[in-house]
Amino acid sequence: MTAAQADLQAEFLEMPEGLRIDRPNLVDGAALWRIAKDSGTLDLNSSYSYLLWCRDFAGTSAVARAADGRPVAFVTGYRRPDRPRTLLVWQVAVDEAHRGRGLAGALLDGLTRRIAGSDGLTAVETTITPGNTASERLFTSYAARHGARVERDVLFDAAHFPDGAPHDPEVLYRIGPLSL
Protein backbone atom coordinates (compact mmCIF):
# COMPACT_ATOMS: atom_id res chain seq x y z
CA MET A 1 0.00 0.00 0.00
CA THR A 2 1.37 3.40 -0.96
CA ALA A 3 1.45 6.35 1.44
CA ALA A 4 -1.40 7.98 -0.50
CA GLN A 5 -3.48 4.80 -0.18
CA ALA A 6 -2.75 4.65 3.56
CA ASP A 7 -3.89 8.25 3.95
CA LEU A 8 -7.06 7.49 2.02
CA GLN A 9 -7.67 4.30 4.01
CA ALA A 10 -7.45 6.21 7.30
CA GLU A 11 -10.39 8.35 6.21
CA PHE A 12 -12.68 5.32 5.91
CA LEU A 13 -13.17 4.38 9.53
CA GLU A 14 -16.13 2.05 9.18
CA MET A 15 -14.95 -0.28 6.43
CA PRO A 16 -15.97 -3.92 6.90
CA GLU A 17 -13.06 -6.15 7.85
CA GLY A 18 -10.97 -7.51 5.01
CA LEU A 19 -11.77 -4.63 2.67
CA ARG A 20 -9.77 -1.54 1.89
CA ILE A 21 -10.65 1.68 0.20
CA ASP A 22 -8.88 3.22 -2.76
CA ARG A 23 -9.35 5.61 -5.62
CA PRO A 24 -10.39 3.90 -8.83
CA ASN A 25 -7.89 3.64 -11.67
CA LEU A 26 -8.26 2.95 -15.35
CA VAL A 27 -8.00 -0.84 -15.03
CA ASP A 28 -10.93 -0.82 -12.55
CA GLY A 29 -13.36 0.37 -15.23
CA ALA A 30 -14.29 -3.15 -16.34
CA ALA A 31 -14.96 -4.28 -12.77
CA LEU A 32 -17.14 -1.23 -12.06
CA TRP A 33 -19.12 -1.92 -15.23
CA ARG A 34 -19.63 -5.54 -14.14
CA ILE A 35 -20.73 -4.56 -10.61
CA ALA A 36 -23.20 -2.03 -12.06
CA LYS A 37 -24.48 -4.59 -14.58
CA ASP A 38 -24.91 -7.27 -11.92
CA SER A 39 -26.74 -4.89 -9.58
CA GLY A 40 -29.93 -5.29 -11.56
CA THR A 41 -31.11 -1.83 -10.48
CA LEU A 42 -28.66 0.73 -11.87
CA ASP A 43 -28.94 2.25 -15.31
CA LEU A 44 -26.02 0.56 -17.03
CA ASN A 45 -23.75 2.94 -18.88
CA SER A 46 -21.38 1.84 -21.63
CA SER A 47 -18.18 0.09 -20.58
CA TYR A 48 -16.35 3.01 -22.20
CA SER A 49 -17.99 5.44 -19.76
CA TYR A 50 -16.74 3.46 -16.74
CA LEU A 51 -13.21 3.50 -18.15
CA LEU A 52 -13.40 7.27 -18.62
CA TRP A 53 -14.92 7.69 -15.16
CA CYS A 54 -12.03 5.84 -13.55
CA ARG A 55 -9.56 7.99 -15.45
CA ASP A 56 -11.17 11.43 -15.23
CA PHE A 57 -13.19 11.38 -11.99
CA ALA A 58 -11.08 9.17 -9.71
CA GLY A 59 -10.62 12.09 -7.32
CA THR A 60 -14.35 12.28 -6.65
CA SER A 61 -14.96 8.52 -6.64
CA ALA A 62 -13.99 5.57 -4.45
CA VAL A 63 -13.75 1.79 -4.67
CA ALA A 64 -13.67 -0.87 -1.98
CA ARG A 65 -11.14 -3.61 -2.70
CA ALA A 66 -11.00 -7.20 -1.52
CA ALA A 67 -7.71 -8.60 -0.22
CA ASP A 68 -6.73 -9.59 -3.77
CA GLY A 69 -7.18 -5.97 -4.97
CA ARG A 70 -10.40 -6.68 -6.87
CA PRO A 71 -13.04 -3.92 -6.65
CA VAL A 72 -16.17 -5.12 -4.81
CA ALA A 73 -18.03 -1.81 -4.49
CA PHE A 74 -17.85 1.72 -5.77
CA VAL A 75 -19.18 5.24 -5.50
CA THR A 76 -18.79 7.51 -8.51
CA GLY A 77 -19.34 11.22 -8.34
CA TYR A 78 -18.28 14.59 -9.62
CA ARG A 79 -18.31 18.20 -8.49
CA ARG A 80 -21.02 20.20 -10.17
CA PRO A 81 -19.35 22.77 -12.44
CA ASP A 82 -21.75 25.52 -11.37
CA ARG A 83 -21.61 24.47 -7.69
CA PRO A 84 -18.08 23.20 -7.00
CA ARG A 85 -18.80 22.62 -3.28
CA THR A 86 -21.55 20.15 -4.25
CA LEU A 87 -20.74 16.51 -5.01
CA LEU A 88 -23.20 14.82 -7.34
CA VAL A 89 -23.14 11.09 -6.62
CA TRP A 90 -23.66 9.35 -9.94
CA GLN A 91 -23.75 5.69 -8.92
CA VAL A 92 -23.30 3.53 -5.83
CA ALA A 93 -23.03 -0.23 -6.25
CA VAL A 94 -21.93 -3.16 -4.10
CA ASP A 95 -21.15 -6.63 -5.40
CA GLU A 96 -23.84 -9.07 -4.27
CA ALA A 97 -21.45 -11.08 -2.07
CA HIS A 98 -20.64 -7.95 -0.03
CA ARG A 99 -24.10 -6.45 0.45
CA GLY A 100 -25.68 -5.93 3.85
CA ARG A 101 -22.44 -4.98 5.61
CA GLY A 102 -22.74 -1.18 5.51
CA LEU A 103 -20.21 -0.89 2.73
CA ALA A 104 -22.12 1.66 0.63
CA GLY A 105 -22.53 3.98 3.62
CA ALA A 106 -18.87 3.63 4.60
CA LEU A 107 -17.75 4.46 1.07
CA LEU A 108 -20.05 7.47 0.89
CA ASP A 109 -18.96 8.76 4.31
CA GLY A 110 -15.29 8.31 3.52
CA LEU A 111 -15.49 9.84 0.07
CA THR A 112 -17.27 12.95 1.29
CA ARG A 113 -14.87 13.34 4.23
CA ARG A 114 -11.93 13.13 1.84
CA ILE A 115 -13.40 15.72 -0.53
CA ALA A 116 -14.44 18.03 2.32
CA GLY A 117 -10.94 17.86 3.75
CA SER A 118 -9.22 18.78 0.51
CA ASP A 119 -11.43 21.39 -1.14
CA GLY A 120 -14.50 21.91 0.99
CA LEU A 121 -17.88 20.33 0.51
CA THR A 122 -21.22 21.71 1.61
CA ALA A 123 -23.75 19.47 -0.14
CA VAL A 124 -24.32 16.11 -1.78
CA GLU A 125 -26.82 15.52 -4.56
CA THR A 126 -28.02 12.33 -6.16
CA THR A 127 -31.01 11.14 -8.12
CA ILE A 128 -33.13 8.18 -7.08
CA THR A 129 -36.04 6.55 -8.87
CA PRO A 130 -39.20 6.12 -6.79
CA GLY A 131 -39.30 2.73 -5.14
CA ASN A 132 -35.52 2.30 -4.87
CA THR A 133 -35.73 1.86 -1.12
CA ALA A 134 -32.09 0.82 -0.69
CA SER A 135 -30.87 4.12 -2.17
CA GLU A 136 -33.50 6.12 -0.31
CA ARG A 137 -32.31 4.58 2.99
CA LEU A 138 -28.64 5.06 2.11
CA PHE A 139 -28.98 8.77 1.41
CA THR A 140 -31.49 9.64 4.15
CA SER A 141 -29.33 7.87 6.74
CA TYR A 142 -26.27 9.67 5.33
CA ALA A 143 -28.08 12.99 5.83
CA ALA A 144 -29.01 12.05 9.41
CA ARG A 145 -25.42 11.06 10.26
CA HIS A 146 -24.18 14.42 9.02
CA GLY A 147 -26.91 16.61 10.49
CA ALA A 148 -28.17 17.71 7.09
CA ARG A 149 -31.57 18.38 5.59
CA VAL A 150 -32.87 16.43 2.61
CA GLU A 151 -34.80 18.25 -0.09
CA ARG A 152 -36.47 16.25 -2.84
CA ASP A 153 -37.67 17.47 -6.25
CA VAL A 154 -38.27 15.66 -9.52
CA LEU A 155 -35.26 16.51 -11.70
CA PHE A 156 -36.16 14.44 -14.76
CA ASP A 157 -39.66 13.15 -15.34
CA ALA A 158 -40.36 10.18 -17.62
CA ALA A 159 -40.97 12.45 -20.64
CA HIS A 160 -37.39 13.81 -20.46
CA PHE A 161 -35.88 10.46 -21.48
CA PRO A 162 -35.54 10.31 -25.28
CA ASP A 163 -34.91 6.62 -25.86
CA GLY A 164 -38.56 5.56 -25.95
CA ALA A 165 -38.15 2.95 -23.24
CA PRO A 166 -40.25 3.55 -20.15
CA HIS A 167 -38.16 5.23 -17.47
CA ASP A 168 -39.21 6.18 -13.99
CA PRO A 169 -38.72 9.79 -12.95
CA GLU A 170 -35.41 10.69 -11.33
CA VAL A 171 -35.91 12.48 -8.02
CA LEU A 172 -33.11 14.84 -7.02
CA TYR A 173 -32.06 14.50 -3.38
CA ARG A 174 -30.22 17.60 -2.12
CA ILE A 175 -28.43 16.93 1.16
CA GLY A 176 -26.95 19.84 3.06
CA PRO A 177 -25.54 21.82 4.56
CA LEU A 178 -23.11 19.13 5.66
CA SER A 179 -21.21 19.02 8.93
CA LEU A 180 -18.24 16.81 8.11
Rank of each mutant, 00 (worst) to 15 (best):
T133C: 04
E170F: 02
Q5W: 02
A93S: 10
W33G: 08
L42I: 11
L88E: 12
R55L: 13
W90C: 06
Y78G: 09
R83K: 11
G105P: 02
R55V: 05
G131H: 09
V150K: 01
P24Q: 10
A148T: 12
D38I: 10
P177T: 02
G120D: 07
R149S: 11
I21A: 15
R83S: 13
P71V: 01
R70A: 02
G176Q: 10
R83V: 04
V124E: 06
A4F: 08
M15T: 14
H98F: 15
A31S: 15
D153Y: 08
D56G: 03
A67H: 03
T2L: 07
G100V: 05
S49I: 14
L111Q: 10
R113Q: 07
L107I: 07
A73R: 01
H98W: 14
R20E: 07
V89P: 03
R83P: 00
A67D: 14
A143V: 04
A106D: 05
D95Y: 03
E17R: 15
D38K: 15
L172V: 03
R149Y: 05
H167R: 15
A62Q: 00
P130Q: 06
A93M: 04
A64L: 01
R80W: 03
V154S: 02
R113K: 13
D168V: 04
T126L: 01
P84A: 00
N45K: 08
E14V: 08
R152T: 15
P130R: 08
F161L: 12
P162G: 07
L13P: 01
A165G: 07
L107E: 06
E96R: 09
A4N: 09
E14Q: 14
I128S: 09
F74Q: 04
E96F: 00
L87Q: 10
L32D: 12
V75S: 06
L178N: 13
Q5C: 04
L51Q: 13
I21F: 11
R80V: 07
I115H: 12
E125L: 09
T41E: 13
G77I: 00
P81W: 12
L88N: 12
L51W: 11
L32W: 04
R55I: 03
D43C: 07
A6K: 13
D153M: 12
E14D: 15
G100P: 02
P177N: 03
L13A: 10
D7Y: 01
A165S: 08
A93E: 05
A67K: 01
D163V: 10
I175K: 02
D22Y: 00
A158G: 13
V171D: 08
R20T: 13
L180D: 03
S39M: 08
A159T: 14
L8W: 01
T129H: 05
L138M: 08
M15G: 05
L121E: 14
R145F: 00
G131Y: 06
E170I: 12
R79V: 04
E136R: 10
G164A: 12
H167Y: 09
Y50W: 09
V150I: 09
